[in-house]
């Protein structure tokens, strides 16, 4: 089955980010969304450690380790950036001032529950700001492979792993489809043209619904 690369998923997610939006990208894969911001749109990226107006990584050798993102990677400051303390940073989140948070997922359930911070009860638990982000941001989107590395569905009826937040996810961008959470159901909005509805349903752990036409999930060549 054809599927999108990580870059393809990130590109698709970036197309939905509106001009003027304040956006938080989760550490790791979601950070890639910033690379595909459509030209002509101004998006302000928030970093939990206390930055608004975060820019891309500096050239190697030009890192300033007091300008880092939430994943502790070196970043830059765009013109108009601001720096603030941690309680203000999370007031922006908890107070509903961040328009969009984009996170990764272990599982998303059809009721919008998200599990993305811990697999079972193994290892040292580490939560970071994920729980704050999914309850505080005005809209929460997920970017993810459609299935796990072993082929298990990541879109499920109920999450088996510990929850990050309850009923928080609005949209999921996967390697096969764009799926919305609407009133406790997964609604298919877009799919790869080469993959049938039935084929996507077969690798989805909950019922997929259709509400209106299903668009073609097409990304630029080379991604």
């Amino acid at each position: 089955m054809e599927k999108l690369s990580s870059a393809g998923i990130a590109w698709r997610a970036a197309q939905d980010i509106a001009d003027g939006a304040y956006v938080n990208l989760g550490i790791g894969f979601p950070e890639m969304v910033a690379q595909f911001q459509p030209p002509g749109r101004h998006v302000t990226y928030h970093s939990e450690n206390g930055i608004l107006g975060m820019g891309p990584a500096p050239e190697e050798g030009a890192e300033d380790w007091d300008v880092i993102n939430a994943g502790k990677k070196a970043v830059t400051l765009n013109p108009g950036a601001s720096i603030f303390h941690h309680a203000d940073s999370f007031a922006m989140v908890r107070g509903g001032h961040i328009d969009l948070a984009v996170l990764g997922a272990y599982e998303v359930a059809e009721n919008g529950d998200l599990a993305n911070w811990r697999i079972g009860n193994k290892g040292t638990p580490a939560v970071g700001g994920a729980m704050d982000m999914v309850t505080g941001a005005r809209r929460v989107a997920v970017v993810t492979e459609h299935v796990t590395k072993t082929g298990a569905p990541k879109l499920v009826e109920r999450c088996a792993n510990p929850l990050t937040g309850v009923g928080c996810v609005a949209r999921v961008y996967t390697s096969l489809a764009v799926v919305d959470v609407v009133d406790g159901r997964f609604v298919l909005r877009e799919k790869l043209p080469s993959v049938t509805f039935e084929a996507i349903q077969a690798v989805t752990g909950a019922q997929l619904h259709q509400a209106g036409p299903v668009g073609a999930l097409v990304v630029p060549e080379g991604l």
């Binding site: 939990e48 941690h86 908890r94 970071g128 309850t135 309850v166």
Partner: peptide, 26 residues
């Protein structure tokens, strides 16, 4: 949770013994 940690610290400094947050519910 990171934002709760920050707010608990701010509350400690501001003399506010407790507060409510949606973070972590469920």
């Amino acid at each position: 949770p990171q934002g709760t940690l920050a707010e608990r610290i701010r509350a400690g400094g501001a003399g506010i013994p407790a507060f409510y947050t949606a973070t972590g519910v469920g």
